[in-house]
């Protein structure tokens, strides 16, 4: 299953809600303001790194770049473009947007 998160983890608890519900082997794609959580020094970075043990974590590159965060991505986070976003939706049997 693919989980899509679009909220900043330092403003809302959406990422936390997603991570507690995501089963082992699932993928989590961070888009829009959620990408900040995948950057070095962010308060949510430890959560992302811990989650990366059981989950595949992705972040949308164009959203990172638009926020000046392209050079700060955490190790273990896979950066994808919109084509990669489409591939992720296609590869997983279902998806959930944590709005």
């Amino acid at each position: 299953m693919l989980h899509i998160v679009n909220k900043s983890a330092t403003e809302r608890s959406t990422l936390e809600s997603c991570l507690r519900m995501a089963t082992k082997g699932s993928a989590v794609l961070l888009i829009e303001d959620a990408v900040y959580a995948a950057t070095n020094g962010n308060a949510a970075a430890a959560k992302i790194q811990a989650a990366a043990a059981d989950l595949k974590i992705y972040a949308l590159g164009p959203d990172l770049a638009a926020r000046g965060m392209a050079g700060r991505v955490l190790d273990g986070v896979n950066v994808v473009d919109y084509g990669g976003f489409v591939d992720l939706v296609a590869e997983h049997s279902n998806c959930q947007s944590w709005l």
Binding site: N6, D33, P62, G83, V86
Partner: peptide
């Protein structure tokens, strides 16, 4: 909200990729 922009870019890209 960015939602509409993201949706559009997703849709356009999906079509470009042959979906």
């Amino acid at each position: 909200h960015q939602a509409s922009d993201t949706a559009y870019l997703f849709a356009r890209t999906a079509i470009e990729k042959g979906h």
